[in-house]
Design a binder for these strands. Structure first.
Lengths: 350, 350
DNA sequence: CTGAAAGCGCTAACAC
DNA sequence: GTGTTAGCGCTTTCAG
């Protein structure tokens, strides 16, 4: 009677039944149960019913660990993020999680803090846990990482980043092109003196290309580009935005519109402008980058260059699964960007 | 020579070595290797060195799946969230992830969308994956969920929620008390006509208690409470905040200060106020709830009742591990709240 | 101190 | 159709 039920610490615990229990209950061999479980062929309708009944009665659920051991497939992927609490990353994660779950996989989140040794530790972990694939987001894929993942010999896709060195499929927007669009938008709105508060110019993925795109747009439209128009920050944060605006007002007070390399920078700039009594957008227009959900919450609502973050996450997850399922050639995806117009940019009539 | 290395799809793949390979290379049995791997005793220093060398040379890493199968411990926990892209949840996750990783575990994120059948599916999944514990956040623990997790017989902790029915350890702030503090803060600032934009009043965890706390504070300080002062929303979102402020202006235009039941609501209210030309905080003071990272980014910077979300996540993770490691009695934790003063509340002199 | 052997729960030949 | 058996990579008795 109490087979498979035992008492521990005074409490009644129901054990997780195994395939053996089911087999016994249904009077068949475990092989048959396994076949039915995996929709293979080689059994009669009658035994199938019998087994299914037993499964139902015992409320049996196969042990994914045991399955993983033999199939060499854990239905789990690992996702590496530099930060977890940034909204940017959060939207990517939501997209990944959705697609992964739809495709029957779980996702393990790893927060690397952009720290090399932490990243390696996570990679070790993911290796030991035998994840089926890895999504690497928003950071440079260092040689060390790449080599390690190579050795793990599981699929890898880059999300919101890319590698100029290694041939790894990626999903991102064309930063240079997107920045170009943002700057062009400002120009079309009649602004002639346009500044940029950029992220880190040494960041070859999200920093430099946006600066280049910005410059290109100005140049293409016949505007000169002075260094004083572009203030570079450490990163892409709110504080960087504040600092950025301060510098901008000193170096190029004539600027009537600013392209911020991230929404957070834009928020910082707006906040600083507010403190300095500069009215936005009347005196100073600002366009952000990312179109995070907070963009609509700012005052005034922030016009922003939109990246489809959620969709990017989904896409990356789908790519990983295509690769896991043997697709040799998955193409990288340049996702479309767009401009989400709100109220932080004004038309300049002159 | 090519033992353990094979070629697949034209590419050289390095296999994951097993304990057997190490044993062979070191000329010992797998039992010995296992002992050394697990820091048990029963081997000489010499063999230890030999084995360690072999491990090093092969770059061997134990297979966590195989270990999990035998140890019945996967070093993985599951975390259920109603939403992933809310900043609120994101901070909790960051805290959980940090603590979990420190304690040698991974976390699988599950996005339930507050949907019962999705939640059950996730629980099934976590059961099959044999996670060591579950953290359930920000939602009512329904009977169905509870029963299922009971059957899984693994530890469960509630985060930012609690159960009045089941005895499950939880980590949260005292919402009623916190709301009381927020209202009291407004009173101490000299406000006499105070309103509240609440979340859903039918939400017994985060909705009702905050309303109650608000009422208590007013009553205790000798203020009458009219229904018109409290506008209830569907949820806790930006849009709810906008709507809330609109209603508040209609129903109780005399109000000089508002307690918003979440920062997002506060943001919505501020945004709406801005559109209506109401100056904040001069004409209307607002205090939020949560103290999300965006609170400092609003204009004006939002004074908010702070929940230590990150720490709450950490704490919940630590509790789960205490339970996994056999602690029978872990106490629930009421985390301290505080008021983060910024500039959205003004002192009212009369 | 060390090794042989029996599983953990499952899948996949291989027999009958 | 169905059962038997040999593992997957590891831990853990139990002998020696």
């Amino acid at each position: 009677m109490y087979e498979n039920v035992y008492v521990k610490a005074g409490r009644r615990w129901e054990m997780n039944y195994t395939i053996k229990d089911v087999a016994k209950k249904a009077n068949v061999s475990i092989a048959t149960v396994s076949r039915i479980l995996n929709n293979q062929k080689g059994y009669s309708e009658k035994t199938k019913r019998k087994v299914l009944e037993a499964i139902e009665e015992l409320d049996y659920h196969p042990n994914a660990i045991a399955r993983g051991l033999i199939n060499k497939k854990t239905s789990t992927i690992g996702v590496l993020f530099p930060a977890l609490s940034s909204m940017f990353v959060t939207e990517l994660l939501a997209g990944i999680e959705k697609a992964a779950h739809q495709l029957g996989s779980s996702v393990i989140v790893c927060h690397t803090e952009s720290n090399g040794s932490k990243t390696m530790k996570y990679l070790q972990l993911l290796n030991e846990k035998r994840v089926d694939g890895i999504i690497f987001t928003s950071e440079i894929l260092k040689e060390e990482y790449y080599e390690f993942i190579q050795k793990m010999s599981i699929p890898l896709v880059l999300l919101s980043t890319e590698s100029r060195i290694y041939s790894v499929p990626y999903v991102k927007v064309d930063d240079r092109h997107a920045a170009y669009s943002a700057a062009q938008y400002l120009i079309k709105k009649g602004h002639k003196r346009i500044g940029m508060i950029s992220g880190n110019q040494n960041d070859l993925i999200a920093g430099k290309p946006r600066i280049d795109g910005f410059k290109d747009a100005l140049l293409d439209h016949g505007f000169p580009v002075h260094d004083s128009q572009i203030v570079c920050s450490e990163g892409f944060t709110f504080a960087d935005g504040r600092e950025g605006l301060k510098k901008m007002r000193q170096l190029a007070p004539e600027v009537t519109a600013i392209f911020a390399a991230s929404d957070e920078i834009a928020f910082g700039a707006i906040s600083e402008a507010y403190q300095q009594g500069i009215r936005i957008p009347e005196e100073l227009s600002i366009i952000g980058y990312d179109n995070l959900s907070i963009a609509e919450m700012s005052i005034p609502p922030l016009t922003s260059l939109a990246q489809p973050l959620y969709e990017m996450g989904e896409k990356a997850a789908k790519m990983i699964f295509d690769m896991i399922n043997g697709d040799q050639l998955v193409e990288s995806r340049i996702m479309p960007h767009s401009i989400k117009e709100r109220s932080s940019v004004v038309k300049k009539e002159e």
